[in-house]
Amino acid sequence: MPASSGLTSALRESALRTLHIEQAAINDLKEKLDEGFDRACSLILACQGRVVVTGMGKSGHIAGKLAATLASTGTPAFFVHPGEASHGDLGMITRTDVVLALSNSGETAEVTALLPLLKRLGVPLISMTGRPGSTLGTHADAHLDSGVAREACPLDLAPTSSTTAALALGDALAVALLEARGFTAEDFALSHPGGSLGKRLLLRVKDLMHSGERLPKVPLGSPLRDALLEITRQGLGFTCVVDDDGRLAGVYTDGDLRRTLDEYHDLRSVSVDAVMTRPGKRIRPDVLAAEAVRLMEDSRITALAVVDEHERPIGALHMHDLLSSGVI
């Protein structure tokens, strides 16, 4: 049954109120960034092992996401459930690691129970809590204050603003570390090789181009008929036109054919030189495939000639190749 207009209005007001409260919680974090954040970054940058992130309940979910973000941005990290840590998983933590523990109250029993064990190992502890004076906050080597004025939940009970703030502060930490390490887009792609993001960042033109016998090519002075036959034979919608030294002089495309038909009634006497596009769009083989996409879109074309340092065609790239590879 569709909601009445009054109910719809109330629902939207509730949603807006939630967003305003959580937005305010994130804005308040700016005033909480202090020397503790600097110490946390220094501890992680000096870490010879991994960052072990832990948290219970909703904080645990945020901790898991933060571990994944750190790991994919140049900081080796993984999540350990604090309850399991006390029952054997603590063996996953070594003396070369750093522990990042999340708890809004700073008093979560499963997390504070790890304190004596971490101290015995001599593992640096970074805490992220909403109460700097809590057990977790005071026993940490560095503390990140993620405290909020109130939860977005009208009962002020369900973790809402506090988890949003912790998530944002965790992202700020990960990005600060990323920049400090000089982490690049190529580095990011190496940890995401199976996704479309990795393909966009890693694949180069030479990985996708048609070469050898699949390269459409005719010499200058060829009858237009030969160029059309080459376009049809290779099925890429264009052909390269090369000079006596094998350099790219121009290209002839399906679009050029439409313009030729408008200008010439008899194509039998037409040379490809008279109707080709000069000098023709081209690209180098080592260029990222994503750059080829941009060039094609800006030029409103569907194919490119791939040339070497001497401007000799060595391959051809079609938009379909980019689509099938997942680059776009």
Results as ranks from 00 to 15, higher is better:
residue 2 P to I: 06
residue 2 P to R: 05
residue 5 S to E: 11
residue 6 G to V: 07
residue 7 L to P: 00
residue 8 T to E: 15
residue 10 A to W: 12
residue 12 R to L: 15
residue 12 R to C: 12
residue 13 E to S: 15
residue 15 A to E: 11
residue 21 I to M: 04
residue 23 Q to T: 10
residue 28 D to F: 02
residue 33 L to D: 00
residue 35 E to H: 09
residue 39 R to V: 03
residue 41 C to D: 03
residue 41 C to V: 15
residue 42 S to E: 14
residue 44 I to G: 04
residue 46 A to W: 11
residue 46 A to P: 09
residue 52 V to Q: 13
residue 56 M to A: 15
residue 56 M to T: 15
residue 59 S to P: 13
residue 61 H to S: 12
residue 65 K to N: 13
residue 65 K to Y: 08
residue 67 A to R: 10
residue 69 T to S: 14
residue 70 L to M: 06
residue 70 L to G: 08
residue 70 L to A: 08
residue 72 S to E: 09
residue 75 T to M: 05
residue 77 A to E: 02
residue 78 F to M: 08
residue 80 V to E: 01
residue 83 G to Y: 04
residue 85 A to K: 07
residue 89 D to S: 03
residue 91 G to F: 05
residue 93 I to Y: 01
residue 97 D to K: 01
residue 99 V to C: 04
residue 102 L to H: 06
residue 102 L to R: 05
residue 103 S to Y: 10
residue 105 S to Y: 02
residue 106 G to V: 02
residue 106 G to D: 06
residue 107 E to R: 07
residue 112 T to G: 10
residue 113 A to T: 02
residue 114 L to V: 05
residue 115 L to D: 04
residue 116 P to N: 01
residue 117 L to C: 04
residue 122 G to S: 06
residue 123 V to E: 04
residue 125 L to A: 00
residue 126 I to V: 14
residue 139 H to K: 13
residue 143 H to P: 11
residue 144 L to T: 14
residue 146 S to I: 11
residue 147 G to E: 09
residue 154 P to F: 14
residue 155 L to M: 13
residue 155 L to R: 06
residue 158 A to K: 04
residue 159 P to W: 02
residue 160 T to Q: 08
residue 161 S to Q: 07
residue 161 S to E: 05
residue 164 T to H: 11
residue 166 A to V: 08
residue 169 L to I: 07
residue 169 L to Y: 15
residue 170 G to N: 03
residue 175 V to S: 00
residue 177 L to F: 01
residue 177 L to Y: 00
residue 178 L to M: 15
residue 178 L to S: 12
residue 180 A to F: 10
residue 181 R to E: 11
residue 183 F to E: 14
residue 186 E to S: 15
residue 189 A to M: 07
residue 190 L to R: 12
residue 191 S to G: 03
residue 199 K to A: 09
residue 199 K to W: 00
residue 204 R to M: 11
residue 205 V to R: 04
residue 205 V to I: 06
residue 206 K to I: 06
residue 206 K to G: 04
residue 208 L to N: 02
residue 208 L to C: 03
residue 213 E to K: 07
residue 218 V to L: 03
residue 221 G to M: 08
residue 222 S to H: 02
residue 223 P to L: 10
residue 223 P to S: 08
residue 224 L to D: 09
residue 224 L to I: 11
residue 224 L to N: 08
residue 224 L to F: 12
residue 225 R to I: 14
residue 225 R to N: 14
residue 229 L to Q: 13
residue 230 E to N: 06
residue 236 L to F: 06
residue 236 L to C: 09
residue 240 C to M: 07
residue 240 C to L: 07
residue 241 V to Y: 01
residue 249 A to H: 01
residue 256 D to Y: 07
residue 260 T to P: 13
residue 264 Y to H: 15
residue 264 Y to G: 09
residue 269 S to D: 13
residue 269 S to L: 12
residue 275 V to H: 13
residue 280 G to E: 08
residue 281 K to N: 14
residue 284 R to G: 14
residue 286 D to S: 13
residue 289 A to C: 03
residue 294 R to V: 12
residue 295 L to E: 14
residue 297 E to Q: 12
residue 297 E to N: 11
residue 298 D to C: 05
residue 299 S to N: 07
residue 299 S to I: 05
residue 300 R to G: 08
residue 304 L to E: 06
residue 307 V to N: 00
residue 311 E to R: 10
residue 312 R to G: 03
residue 316 A to S: 05
residue 318 H to R: 00
residue 323 L to S: 01
residue 324 S to G: 00
residue 328 I to K: 01
